[in-house]
Design a protein around this nucleic acid. Structure first.
Lengths: 295, 295
DNA sequence: CTATGGTATCTTTATTTGTGATGTATAAAA
DNA sequence: TTTTATACATCACAAATAAAGATACCATAG
């Protein structure tokens, strides 16, 4: 049976064009390569190299098998890097719970960089309402949560306030409010407000209820669709507003109470008394940094 | 450095649940497995198994690495099957040139079965006009050609007549011809005929020119679109007609000269004096069989 | 308490792999 | 043409590795 060392010789010999060069690269003597490849050929019962010329070239069969050998070696690289990751105590999996409202475009940028930094760590991203996130963390179903700050504190969960996200008041361009120049809080109350509501019941919502007539949904996209449809007005984070106003689907209201943009506090939470590996703390830092520059 | 045998031990031990069972499966003594895995653990500097219980279970790290080890072994299976294919003298690549008109639905069925039969042989399928196919074969750019029969014979190319494909006369439902009950050949001539034409010049076409006014295209889909559009009438193979008549895009004309369906002869060609491997001859047989049952 | 099925460890033996010397072929330089 | 440098194959010997076999130990079911 052939072995990995022989496959490595095969691949390196092809890549470097000669057995001797291969030997130098692998830190062996030339005869070792010569024998190793000869043995590989015997094992496979296939002539891999055409040795009739000065520099040995691949035979047709050799070409055909070269890719397979390369693939095996690439897989061993994967194994090695996973082993190295373990040695560096990197986590195998990080489960992230993010409020769907906070799912901003730059988020995927962070994840992209994460996958470069920690190729051996896989990531699970749940989006769910803020109100449901602490329970996820406390029950051990998630490692890190990015959510709108709530007053409620859960033991087993470590809170860390880290910033705020600018929100704006918006409605459909066809909505009655869209006509008004400047809007005061009492102007909003006669019109239906749309709000996000978590599944785990009463939402201790950081977003104020300004109207008596409130409709709820648990899904950010439904909220947006309903608002665009003109069903009511709502508060939305800056990155969503920018996108939707540009598309002409929403109108941003100029309210008298938010000459300075109105920030929803955002916090990052994690399980208490859990050892935190490098990948998780990297992610944590990235989120902190991002939110500090945004708010 | 770890080796393939150790990885195999690792994987088989996990799959069979015990070192002893693994030893039996691999035809070794138990101590060999015990040592092999211990050495692997030393090499990787990772504890793979939790040996505290009766049956050794994977540690968390072990679970994480198990998939990688499996992947490496799967790759070696690929290599082995490629080697076996070479031993059976199967071709690494077959290049197939098919007339686009003959590209029937059952064709992909044959290719599917091909990939099951010859997993280590890759396939290139060109579709091009019949007239251009012999040149492809003769120049060594294709191995097998499936085309409408021409009178022209090329040396270097081995012709083998194998069947026929039923063709029908069709036009758009809006076309003047669509109203007539039965059509004789002279009825067709006042109307524009649409024909396929190869790139390599004059088409010694197996499809008769019945009209003086002829438009050409080199692409079957364009031909169909033009016909559906009502630009002219044309001959199309049965499988295309069935599909398009069902979709209401075409009308099949009942012609007085084809009470028996009118067959275009189809032939399969290959390069002369080339050794033919099992994969190519399998394909050849499949096509012959298919065309015999169709025509 | 014992039979069973499992693992680790030790020693011996067999196999594999690596090394260094040597011979041959070939292309380029003198 | 003769060197010279580089490349590959082969061989014999040393070194490293892996397998086998014997033995001890452990956990568990009956």
């Amino acid at each position: 049976m052939y072995n990995l060392e022989q496959l490595r010789m095969f691949v390196v010999a092809v890549e470097s064009g000669s057995f001797s060069a291969c030997a130098r690269k692998l830190g062996k003597v030339q005869s070792a390569i010569s024998q190793g490849i000869a043995n590989l050929e015997i094992d496979l019962n296939v002539q891999l190299f055409d040795r009739s010329t000065r520099k040995p070239g691949l035979t047709e069969d050799g070409q055909r098998l070269f890719g397979y050998a390369q693939a095996i070696l690439r897989q061993t690289e994967e194994l090695n890097s996973a082993v190295a990751a373990i040695a560096r105590q990197e986590e195998g999996l990080i489960r992230l719970a993010v409020d769907s409202v906070l799912m901003m475009p730059s988020f995927t940028g962070i994840l992209q960089r994460f996958s470069d930094q920690f190729p051996a760590t896989s990531l699970e991203v749940f989006t769910l309402p803020s109100i449901d996130i602490p329970a996820r963390i406390a029950s051990g179903q998630a490692d890190l949560g990015l959510m709108q700050a709530h007053i409620e504190f859960k033991h087993d969960v470590e809170h860390g306030y880290i910033g705020g996200l600018p929100f704006h008041t918006v409605c459909s361009p066809e909505h009655p409010l869209a006509g008004q120049e400047v809007i005061r809080a009492p102007d909003l109350s006669p019109h239906r407000q749309l709000l996000l509501k978590g599944e785990s019941g009463l939402s201790e919502d950081p977003v104020p209820k300004l109207s008596a007539d409130i409709w709820y949904t648990n899904d950010i996209n439904t909220l947006i669709d309903m608002t665009c449809q003109g069903i009511g007005w709502t508060f939305l984070p800056d990155h969503q507003v920018t996108r939707l106003v540009k598309a002409g689907r929403l109108k941003q209201l100029v309210t008298s109470f938010d000459h300075k943009p109105w920030n929803v506090p955002v916090e990052l939470i994690k399980a208490k008394n859990h050892t935190v590996g490098p990948a998780q703390s990297w992610l944590y830092d990235q989120f902190v940094e991002y939110l500090l520059t945004t708010s």
